[in-house]
């Protein structure tokens, strides 16, 4: 695996926050968390990283929402996570493509592989988190 010039390609933890927020607060909450995450990237890592994070996480949140709404349980939690992560990395690479040109095509397959593993992980952890959160809520109501 070469060094990937894309922030958050391998580590999916911030994607997990966006995904969990999407599931608990809906599309608006998800997009807000995604925008906040991008703003944080802008502050800490500069304009290019901020734009890439924005493009990747907004697109990924929207597509995950769409799949959750439209898909009649063909995909499991892992599948939703993988779809989100792949779209996230493609969204980031689109900005890289505009910034430095078609040289970045070299990284496409590596980014997809990274996304499959990161996405499977975030998908499964997200589903566990959602189950924990909702069972906690049920206990409160009793």
């Amino acid at each position: 695996m070469p060094e990937l010039p894309v922030p958050d390609a391998k580590l999916g933890l911030s994607n997990l926050a966006v995904m969990t927020s999407l599931c608990t607060d809906g599309i608006t909450g998800g997009l807000c968390t995604a925008a906040f995450k991008a703003f944080f990237a802008l502050l800490t890592r500069g304009l290019t990283a901020g734009l890439m994070s924005f493009s990747g996480s907004m697109l990924s949140t929207f597509v995950m929402w769409l799949v959750l709404k439209c898909d009649r349980r063909k995909f499991g939690c892992v599948g939703i996570g993988i779809i989100g992560a792949v779209v996230h990395n493609i969204g980031q690479l689109m900005i890289a493509f505009f910034v430095i040109g078609n040289t970045v095509r070299y990284y496409v397959p590596y980014l997809i592989i990274a996304a499959v593993f990161a996405g499977a992980f975030t998908g499964i952890v997200n589903s566990v988190l959602i189950i924990l959160v909702s069972s906690a809520e049920n206990t409160d109501h009793r």
Partner: peptide
């Protein structure tokens, strides 16, 4: 149905997920 229920009612992973990966 909320998205949170949507996730809870889904399987952890399906044959589609495996095929996709």
């Amino acid at each position: 149905m909320s998205l949170s229920d949507n996730i809870r009612n889904r399987k952890k992973f399906t044959a589609f997920d495996v095929a996709l990966a």
